[in-house]
């Protein structure tokens, strides 16, 4: 029994986000021989459709309306709604991104449907789609299913492996002109963040600082290391509370939950709330002066020492590794 699975691809700075490819991989699994449809809005770049085919889409719907150049809840809701009504999918998948989080519950509510948010794994067991998702910020996990009707799900970036690119794949491109009325919430301005370009939730590598950073300037060596690694910079609640950085960088139970390939914790003691936000990272490096610090209990590699000595050394070492390669 094949399923029609619809994924909504996301664009940032004119490029498809990684999570969109991961959604295609998930869709492929779930479709069970059915059809994988990718819808893309907010761009008239034809090459995007090509790329979506390469990563597993069987059909691409280009959603057209100039209002979609910028995200608004009402605008995108009306557009996605119309696409869903056209495609009539069995399953709808979005990334668990700012957009996905904002829009998916409303779409599910409109279809009176179940939504599984923030899935980290998807399996098909006995014809049933079973989602794994973290609860209590990753202190535990649950397996969940939608009992009946259309299945809505959002997937957490960085957890489901995208398919290998297959440049030979191609498919049908449809254009859906969508009608959008009445935007009740209007975006007046977007203020870009001051910190480096890599977003925490999608970063492959994260360099995070805690209270041991001691001041806002203390982030400087971390930023240099992050730049060398192409990493995002994050922080513990302690560092945010002490005003060393903005709360948008906070990782932990009341901040962002991240699962990068490499997490470098600098001057972070490892309160349980922080661990909840990062302990499912693939490899964890801890740098802390206090050998008793809790963070060492979850670290794969630990260095006991002053981060202001260790981090610059690390930056240099990585530079020379790159030169060596």
């Amino acid at each position: 029994m094949g399923r029609t699975v619809l994924t909504f691809a996301e664009i940032r700075e004119n490029e498809l986000r990684n999570v969109s490819f991961e959604a295609l991989a998930a869709a492929k699994d779930i479709s069970d021989g059915g059809e994988v449809v990718a819808a893309v809005a907010g761009s008239d770049d034809d090459s995007l459709a090509e790329t979506l085919f390469h990563y597993g889409a069987d059909r691409v719907v280009k959603v057209e309306n100039e209002i979609l150049d910028h995200y608004t809840n009402d605008g995108y809701f009306q557009a996605y709604l119309q696409v869903i009504q056209t495609v009539k999918p069995d399953v709808v998948i979005l990334g668990h991104t700012a957009l996905g989080k904002d829009l998916s519950p409303r779409l599910a509510a409109r279809f009176n449907a179940g939504l599984i948010s923030d899935a980290t794994d998807i399996e098909v067991i006995d014809e049933e789609v079973v989602f794994t998702r973290p609860i209590y910020s990753g202190k535990a996990f649950e397996k969940k299913r939608v009992k009946e009707g259309t299945i809505f799900a959002t997937i957490r970036p960085n957890n489901i492996q995208a398919l290998d690119k297959d440049s030979s794949r191609t498919g049908e491109v449809l254009t859906e002109e969508v009608v959008i009325n009445d935007l009740r919430t209007v975006v007046k301005e977007v203020v870009r963040k001051a910190t480096s370009g890599v977003d925490l939730s999608e970063a492959k590598v994260i360099v995070a600082g805690g209270r041991g950073i001691k001041s806002a300037e203390g982030f400087k060596p971390l930023e240099e290391l992050a730049e060398e690694l192409g990493a995002a910079v994050g922080a513990s609640r302690g560092a945010c509370d002490a005003d060393y950085c903005d709360y948008s960088l906070q990782i932990g139970q009341t901040g962002k939950v991240v699962t990068p390939d490499l997490y470098i914790a600098c001057g972070i003691s490892g309160a349980i709330q922080h661990l909840a936000g990062m302990s499912n990272s693939k490899v964890i490096v801890a740098i802390n002066k206090d050998p008793e610090a809790n963070i060492f209990n979850v670290a794969d590699y630990g260095i006991v020492g002053d981060l202001f000595e260790v981090v610059p050394l690390l930056t240099e070492e990585i530079k020379s590794l790159k030169v060596g390669v």
Binding site: A98, E189, V190
Partner: peptide
């Protein structure tokens, strides 16, 4: 995701 949108409603 780190950026700030200013919204009127």
């Amino acid at each position: 995701e780190g950026d700030t949108e200013v919204i009127e409603a």
